[in-house]
Design a protein around this nucleic acid. Structure first.
Length: 437
RNA sequence: GUGCCUGUAGCUUAGCUGGUUAAAGCGUCAGGUUGUGGUUCUGAAGAUCGAGGGUUCAAAUCCCUUCAGGCACCCCA
């Protein structure tokens, strides 16, 4: 029985053609993060299971995790997300890190799920977090970064929308305003999260079924259903507008608008599954009907760092996965094109193998990426494979050229060739590189 | 974890209601008289038809099981 050439279920192989695109995506992520003054960190892919227990969502930990025992009987997990790990790092140096802490990372994460469109078991995830800022300025910065990230892929504002909500407001509505107990609050929150996927009448029935009869008689269900229809903040009753969460949202939308980020919208049905969020939450949606989905999200989680026994630290962060982002880029025709980094293929003709070796070495020393075709095949075959690989230049080294130390450089796109010295060749190739970037 | 759909050479497919050595295009490799491509011509390699079992004189083609993939639900990046 031959071995399978397929990758493990839900995990991916990146052939060079795919890897170049992925790298391009990463490059965009890196450069946006750096431009906002964020620094990269990294952590192990394996963490003790208890790091995630009770901090992430229940289902994420119990049913969707790669958990196993190591040889010392410790229960470990492949990280399903990065947030608990960053919090661990920050807590570990809580006293010495200058605030605010602006960090990012691109870890690969693992979740035991059934793969489907835009979701695998393994994925890369850009994680961006800012620690140590209590006020709205942190939220604003996150939204600004998201705007810059989307822009770095040439996305237009019409292609996506940033929906925001506040857990403070939501908790107030469900708790004080409606008078639900903790368990009811949880189930109702779940339901609200799914509101747009369930038919209206069924949704109403589900809500009513989850509310205690005494409250139902006071009209709690109807009050809730009514405010869930709110399209914008001003549709809410006045007493809810007084809530701190509402004020936060209002200010955020206003400031974003003044920054030209007009696609930020209040969405009262936005909940998010992770348990650690404390106030501001958001999700970015693809507006294209064929891919109308939540792409990524984040929010404020002020409680996580403190769980490590140090003083708490207010935090806002978000995460984007490469898998979902690629779906977005595909539907909007924005997938970056990425050519190989090889700039010159050397084709040696006649008895010039050793001379060609020297030429390649010289070019490399001067910073040119050179692939010497050492297959010794016929010239046209070598040329063809250079073309197919997408290399911009071919350099012919024949016996005459070797003698003159001037070589024929062929521009494969322009389909022109000129004979030059090595130095001239280097500057031509480097000029091209500059113009490309 | 639940439901639906799919599974023939590396890729895209043909193969009618079961019948001798399973076709084609693309790609790969080689050659078209020894220094040039994105044209053309010729040739080669490459599939026990996802796997296992069954029905039948006979199965890629019918039935069962299983595996893999896709999509939706769940959940989420």
């Amino acid at each position: 029985m031959a071995l399978s050439t397929q990758p493990y279920k839900g995990a991916r192989d990146f052939y060079p053609d795919d890897k170049r695109v992925l790298n391009k995506v990463f490059e965009n992520w890196h450069s946006v993060c750096r431009s906002f003054g964020y620094e990269e960190y990294d952590t192990p892919i394996i963490e003790p299971a208890e790091l995630f227990a009770a901090k992430s969502g229940e289902e994420l930990v119990n049913e969707q995790s790669y958990a196993f025992k190591d040889r010392g009987d410790r229960i470990v997990m492949l990280r399903p997300e990065m947030t608990p790990s960053v919090s661990r790092l920050v807590a570990g140096k809580r006293q010495e890190l200058p605030l605010p802490i602006r960090w990012y990372s691109i870890p690969s994460c693992w979740r035991y799920e059934r793969p489907q469109k835009g979701r695998g078991r393994e994925f890369y995830q850009l994680n961006v977090d800012i620690f140590g800022v209590e006020g709205l300025a942190a939220e604003i910065e996150m939204l600004q970064m998201i705007d810059a990230l989307m822009l770095s892929f040439k996305a237009k504002h019409s292609m996506y929308e940033i929906r925001i909500n506040s857990r403070v407001l939501m908790n107030y509505i469900l708790g004080d305003w409606l008078g639900l107990d903790i368990i009811e609050q949880k189930t109702i929150a779940r339901l609200i999260d799914r509101m747009h996927k369930v038919p209206g009448t069924e949704f109403k029935a589900l809500i009513e079924a989850s509310i205690a009869p005494s409250l139902r008689e006071q009209g709690a269900a109807d009050r809730l259903l009514k405010i869930l229809k709110a399209d914008s903040l001003v549709d809410l009753p006045v007493d809810l507008l007084e809530n701190e969460g509402s004020k936060t949202i209002l200010k955020l939308i206003k400031i974003c608008a003044s920054l030209g980020i007009a696609n930020v919208k209040f969405d009262i049905t936005l909940v998010r599954g992770l348990d650690y969020y404390t106030d501001f939450v958001f999700e970015v949606f693809d507006t294209d009907p064929s891919n109308n989905r939540s792409m990524f999200g984040g929010g404020r989680y002020d409680g996580l760092v403190g769980l490590f026994g140090v003083d708490p630290l207010p935090t806002v962060g978000f995460a984007i996965s490469d898998v979902v982002l690629m779906e977005f880029l595909k539907t909007h025709n924005l997938v970056p094109v990425a050519k190989p980094e090889t700039e010159v293929c050397i084709i040696s003709i006649g008895e010039t193998y050793e001379h060609s070796l020297k030429v390649s070495a010289e070019l490399r020393e001067m910073g040119v990426n050179v692939a010497f075709d050492i297959t010794n095949r016929k010239t046209d075959k070598q040329l063809k494979s250079a073309v197919k690989k997408g290399v911009p230049y071919v350099l012919f080294v024949g016996e005459q050229e070797a003698e003159d130390e001037r070589y024929k450089l062929k521009d494969l796109q322009a389909s022109s060739e000129e004979t030059h010295s090595i130095h001239r060749i280097v500057s031509i190739v480097k000029d091209r590189r500059k113009n490309k970037n």
